[in-house]
Amino acid sequence: MRFTSFFSGLFLLLTGHLAFAATLSVATASNFSDTLKRIAPAFEKATGHHLRISAASSGKLYAQIRHGAPYDLFLSADAARPIALEQEGLNLPGSRFTYAVGQLALWAPDPANHGLAQKRLENHQFRRLAIGNPKTAPYGIAAMETLKQLGLWDALVNDAARGENIGQTFQFVATGNADIGFVALSQLIQAKIDPAQYWVIPAQHHQPILQQGIILKRSANKKAAERFFDFIKGPAAEQILRESGYLLEAAKE
């Protein structure tokens, strides 16, 4: 009888845990996709909840959310779009926060010119430059601001290859369609690119890339979404964020 009661209790405990497990639909900016895929297993192990990840440009995801896309969470590569959704009343009040600060890098993979990415840009020693589209990609805005800071925007804007998101911009350079390009530092670290191939852009060259997230008001999994936000603020996720090339100190200011 005792054994029966024990196993009955264990069954109820396990099935109860499964009953409360949720699958969160997460809309994430392209630059954060690989990092989120590293965070997901740790979150799932700690909570029992699962993540279903959809990656695209922040601008595209913002438009989808405004048109009713059934996401639970939005992890943008900027602050502007989460703020806009907040102003439109589409987020769970009080949920918006900065989960990371991105870093921009100029990637020039030509092995004959390692360590010379900055000079190649300033001296126009390249065939084609790739940047994210400033209209849809926050890292594209940072690239535009950097080029303006260096006095190069007017000379380069018309010939630049523009990626819809930072993932496409990375592919332009990786495939040789552009021989130099502004990408996210996190992408280069994820791809294990030799640091001699890129220049990490000084922070003063552009506005901070504050990457903010919100919980959508229409989410049916708000409690699980709140647990994810608590988790991403914790030490396990913070270690992954730092290893992936994101800054955290500025995010907490």
Rank of each mutant, 00 (worst) to 15 (best):
L18N: 11
A19E: 11
L24T: 03
S25W: 09
T28P: 01
L36R: 02
K37N: 14
K37W: 08
R38S: 14
R38Y: 14
P41E: 09
P41A: 03
F43Y: 12
F43N: 02
E44N: 12
H49D: 13
R52F: 06
R52P: 08
I53K: 03
A63E: 13
I65L: 08
I65W: 03
G68P: 06
P70V: 04
Y71G: 05
I83L: 14
I83N: 14
A84T: 04
L85G: 01
E86T: 07
E86W: 06
E86Y: 08
G89W: 15
L90H: 07
N91R: 05
P93W: 06
P93S: 00
P93Q: 03
G94Q: 09
F97D: 09
F97Q: 09
A100D: 09
Q103N: 13
W107S: 00
P109D: 05
G115M: 10
L116F: 10
K119S: 15
L121D: 06
R128H: 11
L129W: 00
A130K: 00
I131Q: 10
G132D: 02
N133D: 15
K135Y: 14
P138L: 08
P138D: 09
Y139H: 13
I141H: 06
A143N: 07
A143K: 07
E145N: 04
E145T: 01
E145C: 06
